[in-house]
């Protein structure tokens, strides 16, 4: 049981990192949103597995929240937004795919090196989990930095959020209150950013954040 539970948890956390890479690779917005839904789905599975092996039923609630909001509600809502804005076929890239992937691999290596060194005497399951979570967070940040479209930045932000949830569930005894608050904060962020997108669209006829910079009289 010990070996199997560890392997499955490892597999799911590693899967999350893999999906993060897939997100990085996608340069069309609708495909990116699908990848994000997959990301949230893998997270849900991972959290549920943690709930099972830790024998912590409240983590099922967390998994459910992740499934409903992150894997279903938010991707659908964002799909609708980009369709309404007419940008679902748009290509969004600042840095080339190859360079981004190389950078991402470097980040994963870095998070492994840091985490495995720092948590040398921790539970092996938590160690691996934390290392993967840090990798997911860094990859989400990388996406925010390398994309120029506001929707992609929202997706990057929520991947960071997924990484945090992964880290939180990997450690035993994380209270549910925090989970709910985190989920709600993401929801609120999503609403705010959604409104923000429409406002940008109304004003500047584009969701490209460079328009904001142009508006401030700056060159990007």
């Amino acid at each position: 049981m010990r070996g199997l539970s560890f392997d499955v948890a490892h597999l799911l956390a590693g899967g999350l990192v893999l999906v993060s890479f897939m997100q990085l690779y996608q340069d069309r917005l609708s495909a990116l949103l699908n990848m994000f839904a997959l990301h949230a789905l893998v997270l849900t599975l991972s959290v549920a597995w943690q709930a099972y092996i830790q024998d912590a039923p409240h983590l099922y609630v967390t998994a459910l929240i992740a499934l409903v909001f992150k894997a279903i509600v938010i991707p659908i809502a964002l799909h609708r937004i980009i369709v309404r804005l007419g940008i679902h076929r748009e290509i969004d890239k600042v840095v080339g795919v190859g360079a981004t992937m190389l950078l991402g691999m470097g980040l994963v290596a870095l998070s492994m090196v840091v985490m495995l060194r720092v948590t040398a005497d921790a539970d092996p399951l938590a160690r691996e989990d934390l290392a993967f979570a840090l990798a997911v967070v860094l990859l989400g940040l990388l996406m925010m930095v390398t994309r120029r479209n506001a929707v992609s930045q929202v997706v990057g932000f929520m991947s960071i959020e997924n990484g945090l949830v992964l880290a939180a569930t990997g450690a035993k005894g994380m209270p549910l209150v925090v989970e709910i608050s985190i989920a709600f904060s993401v929801l609120i962020a999503f609403i705010v950013i959604g409104i923000f997108l429409f406002r940008i669209r109304e004003r500047f006829d584009t969701v490209d954040v460079q328009a904001l910079d142009r508006f401030r009289g700056e060159r990007s």
């Binding site: 940040l141 930095v145 930045q153 954040v209 460079q210 910079d213 401030r216 700056e218």
Partner: peptide, 12 residues
């Protein structure tokens, strides 16, 4: 007077 992406890159 940086762009949003540049600020994010600084944090990153």
């Amino acid at each position: 007077f940086l762009t949003i992406r540049q600020y994010l890159s600084l944090v990153f």
